[in-house]
Design a protein around this nucleic acid. Structure first.
Length: 607
RNA sequence: GGGGUUGUAGUUCAGUUUGGUUAGAACGUCUGCCUGUCACGCAGAAGGUCGCGAGUUCGAGUCUCGUCAACCCCGCCA
């Protein structure tokens, strides 16, 4: 094939129609399937645009060409020249966009042969993901993945157009930067020119986009790669892409409005779906008490009800004593589940226990009256009150947890998700967005014996909570006490939740050095260390830093939801396994001794 | 770091509960036949380190222990 020009395609495999009949065309592509009738031979040629049927006819072609065509196998790269013909009466394939025509072959050239692929390049595959990841380039030939990457491209393009039209500037920030002691474990890159020193790959461009605000670029965005060396999940890869944004002179409402507009645009433009804006808002406290989680899936009910007042002083000692001790009794109502067997109820109790509950009480409101292991202690009146509080009617089941408020919420939140999954309560065709805001700024961490940033160390406190920062230094309350002043500081922090997935996170930042420094101090970073680690940020805040804030939607998670993917691996061209390995290229891999030597590194323990 | 699921022809699986003759099926591959198929059809053939390593046993795909990998979850992480 010395002269490819002579066989180069004139059309793609997805574009020929009946109106092209009579044209002489050339197609290039992969041989998808063949149907050899001994005389007649049909071949489907595939490229990313589609499939076109090519027919090889012995009455037209010489014996050599027929023989060659008869021996071409799956995934061979071929070039075909022929005449577009209308298919005979009754032979039209209405399943295919090109189904009205076929290319009557005149010439065939093999551009490259293919080994038998380890799995079929078919619409559906049952091949294990491990195998598909090893041969990712073959898996990407399948529409299943190909279409998702195409949709991802459209999302990226629409984001750029939308934000650019609203005066946002896309500005790149470095991948090699200094390690800062925040959040996740860093990926580290050794420096050759400064031996013994290291760059870190950014967990996000957080500080850099703040520097851009200080530079005066008041509307910034970037499709930014973010790297974190933490354990993986279906929705977590070591590198992911954020639609990173930051704005100056804005309030939370301004940022919500930009994101609501962006999401509305993306869903309309790409999926043809009309989103209703503005999105509902919940405070963190409301989300936790109603759903037991800070990223609730609001496509289904099963909300949490507080029963403490009802069961205070009731005949069931366990409940009464818990309430007397200042703890809580909470419940969720599962509609239509009164028929659960003893075994099924036991399985939910196991789930509750694994989530931290000591037990799980239940009341099954059957047609012949409520059934419950604690019915005789509660009595009919209390059970009636529980029914009306949880809006349970005949046929429903109520599950009750008694413990600390946070344990109750955590357990019932978990049960809620598991039950919705078990009973298929979440409608996959619905997209329910929700803002969660007013997070606590700090969270007590018993492991290290001090407060941690709940989200981000640069998030600003509510102005009316500023006094609590100082109050926390002299309070007689223990750090673990939920009424500790620092535990009560609310943050200008907000998350965007979509169908129970955290899709974006952001906040209004500290633009005053004194407040930022005070927060770092509370987080256990003294002035000396703050200077060393964040000196550049603190210094920049002293040169007229404007009020600013931002947000960063996760592109992978967003596209995963938009394409109905269970894992973000399906919307990433070359993802890694849960052990952060790339099965295709074998990364991570050892490097040469010479490379180690140049960097001044030695491997101490290979494990 | 912890819990769970899975691992048997190229691929997807059955066989493991109850250890016992030659480890099966489908798809794919190869050969032959077939002139309107489109998951073409028909006939035949080849194809196995039962993830890996120990152990128990007369005998292990099957039982025990360890180990590796993929996936899901907790911890961890935006």
């Amino acid at each position: 094939m010395s002269d490819f020009k002579a066989v180069q395609r004139t059309h793609t495999c997805g574009e020929l129609r009946a109106s092209d009949a009579g044209k002489t065309v050339r197609l290039n592509g992969w041989l998808h399937r063949w149907r050899d009738h001994g005389g007649l031979l049909f071949v489907d040629v595939r490229d990313r645009y589609g499939l076109t049927q090519v027919v090889f006819r012995p009455d037209i072609l010489d014996r050599e060409t027929m023989k060659l065509a008869g021996h071409v196998r799956a995934e061979t790269v071929i070039a075909v020249e022929g005449v577009v013909g209308l298919r005979p009466e009754g032979m039209i394939n209405t399943e295919m966009p090109t189904g009205e025509i076929e290319v009557v072959a005149g010439k065939l050239a093999v551009l490259n042969e293919s080994k038998t692929p380890p799995f079929e390049i078919a619409e559906e595959t049952t091949a294990a993901e491990e195998l598909r990841l090893r041969y990712r380039y073959l898996d990407l030939r399948r529409n299943f993945l190909k279409d998702k990457l195409i949709l991802r491209h459209k999302v990226c393009l629409a984001i750029r157009n939308y934000l650019s039209a609203r005066d946002f500037l896309e500005i790149e920030t470095p991948l090699l930067m200094r390690s800062t002691p925040e959040g996740a474990r860093d990926y580290i890159v050794p420096s050759r020119t400064a031996r013994g020193k290291f760059y870190a790959l950014p967990q996000s461009p957080q500080l850099l986009k703040q520097m851009l605000m200080i530079s005066g670029f008041d509307k910034y965005f970037q499709l930014a790669r973010c790297l974190r060396d933490e354990d993986l999940r279906a929705d977590r890869q070591p590198e992911h892409t954020q639609i990173d944004m930051e704005m100056s002179f804005v309030t939370m409402d301004d940022i919500f409005a930009v994101i609501e507009g962006l999401m509305q645009h993306l869903f309309k433009e790409i999926l043809g779906i009309d989103l209703v804006i503005p999105f509902p808002r919940l405070t963190y406290a409301e989300a936790m008490s109603r759903y037991g989680i800070d990223k609730p899936d609001t496509r289904y009910g099963l909300t949490i009800t507080d029963l403490s007042d009802i069961v205070a002083g009731c005949g069931f000692k366990v409940f009464a004593e818990i309430v007397a001790a200042g703890k809580t009794v909470k419940a969720i109502c599962a509609p239509g589940q009164a028929g659960l067997s003893r075994k099924q109820v036991g399985q939910w109790e196991e789930t509750a226990k694994s989530a931290g509950a000591k037990g799980l009480a239940y009341i099954l409101y059957g047609a012949d009256g409520p059934r419950s292991s604690i019915a005789k202690f509660l009595g009919p009146e209390i059970m009636q009150q529980i029914a009306s509080a949880t809006a349970a009617t005949t046929g429903d089941a109520v599950f009750i947890v008694a413990d600390d408020k946070t344990v109750c919420e955590g357990v019932l939140g978990r049960l809620r998700i598991e039950m919705a999954r078990e009973w298929g309560l979440a409608d996959p065709r619905r997209f329910e967005f929700l803002w969660v805001h007013a997070f606590p700024l700090f969270e007590y961490n018993p492991e290290i014996g001090r407060f941690d940033a709940m989200h981000n160390i640069v998030t600003s406190p509510y102005a009316e909570d500023l006094a609590l920062l100082e109050e926390g230094r002299s309070t007689p309350l223990a750090a673990v006490d939920p009424h500790h002043p620092w535990a009560r500081v609310r943050a200008n922090q907000y998350d965007l939740v979509l169908n129970g997935t955290e899709i974006a996170s952001g906040g209004i930042r500290n633009h005053r050095r004194d407040i930022q420094q005070q927060i770092l101090n509370i987080l256990g970073i003294d002035d000396e260390r703050a200077e060393r680690m964040f000196g550049f940020l603190l210094e920049a805040l002293e040169y007229g830093a404007p009020p600013h804030g931002g947000i960063a939607p996760g592109l992978d998670r967003l596209v995963a939801v938009m394409t109905g993917s269970d894992s973000i691996r399906d919307v990433i061209a070359f993802p890694k396994t849960t052990a952060a390995q790339s099965l295709m290229d074998g990364a991570p891999a050892e490097i040469d001794d010479k490379q180690l030597h140049e960097l001044g590194l030695a491997i101490v323990d290979k494990k």
